[in-house]
Amino acid sequence: MNEKTPFRLPPIEPTNDAALAARLQHKIDHKTKPLGALGALEDLALQLGLIQRSESPALHAPQMLVFAADHGIAAEGVSAYPQAVTVQMVANMLAGGAAINVFSRQHGFALQVVDAGVAAELPAHPQLLPRKIAYGTKNLCHEAAMSRSEAEAALSAGMAVVQALPGNVLALGEMGIANTSAAALLLARLAGTRIEDATGRGTGLSDPQLLHKQGVLKLALARHPASQPLDVLAELAALGGFEIAMMAGAMLQAASQRRVVLVDGFIAGAAALVAHALVPAVRDYLVFCHRSAETGHRLLLAQLQAKPLLELDLRLGEGTGALLAWPLLQSAANFLNQMASFESAGISAKAGE
């Protein structure tokens, strides 16, 4: 049998166990602190417990995946840097010199770079996973960025990469010149955001360059009318990038395996938007780590009803914001597991409790 295996999305169970949620909330509320005093950390502890179906969640063997790919729309001058920077930055990551390498070493994450579609041959390296769909997407100002089968292949590749990983925590990052354009287009199409509001400066565009980028993206949207009814895979194929598609697949697979998923900035957020549109239950497993300085990210987070853990005006990508938030997840799990309760500490609770 040489028939192609049909594309299937992984099943994801919502984390809607009301009884477990009540037990976790009771445990959180009866720690030696005023009710709600640890703020968002308490919400995070509850989410971790629900993801792991446990009143004592544990985080182990955290993985960092950086998906790299090129974009045909870079030919339209939408980035401050040439496309060659993608392969140069991948080489820097594999040499251990990028910011994500520094933070991965600091926090004990196993780092791998995934070639999702870099427009060059990459030499073999122990930390490089060759999963190239093509040598960059096509210029979506003239044709679809990828075919539907390529979009499905990218999603499947992201799923397969995660299947092979140990641990129960997955952080996701990316590298790809012009990928803020693809992310802005997906935000505009999937959330109905105006392109002017979805489009930011990316790697540091000047005001005239930003206006040019917005004009290019308006034409690109007009070139690809919205599918009726909305077909998420068709929109991903028309407007997306290989690294965005693979990240979306990775998120879906991780959620199906009850892993905690650390979502980085605007590009990873666009992948989350795609994943959520495909399987809404994935949202329960996503921890949104920071709000970036990229214009559309605030709107994207609002669309997903996400409250990010940090706001540091980051706009680097690579997964850096995800790893900067990692100590907060550790603290959430640790206070839930190690902090004394009023009863165990022999401390009087608030009157009426």
Rank of each mutant, 00 (worst) to 15 (best):
L286Q: 10
V232I: 14
G72D: 08
R189C: 07
P126S: 14
P166I: 01
L170H: 02
A340K: 05
L323R: 07
T180P: 05
A184R: 04
E174C: 09
G249A: 01
P62G: 09
A84V: 15
G136T: 08
F288Y: 13
I195K: 09
L233M: 15
V85T: 13
A275V: 04
S56G: 01
T193E: 12
F335K: 01
A157Y: 00
M159H: 02
L140W: 12
S54C: 04
V279H: 06
L230H: 05
A191R: 06
P34E: 15
K132L: 00
M1P: 14
I12Q: 07
T86R: 10
Q112E: 09
L219P: 00
F109A: 08
Q127E: 10
L35E: 13
E353W: 15
A349Q: 10
Y285L: 02
S227I: 01
L329I: 08
D284I: 05
L170S: 04
A325R: 05
D231R: 06
P82G: 12
Y285K: 06
A302M: 13
A80D: 07
Q214L: 09
T203G: 12
A145W: 06
P166T: 02
S149H: 03
P82S: 03
Q25M: 04
G200E: 05
A183P: 13
S156E: 12
G240T: 05
L50F: 01
N2Y: 11
F242R: 08
R223K: 15
P208H: 13
G200P: 03
M1H: 12
L221C: 12
L262S: 06
D284Q: 06
A234P: 01
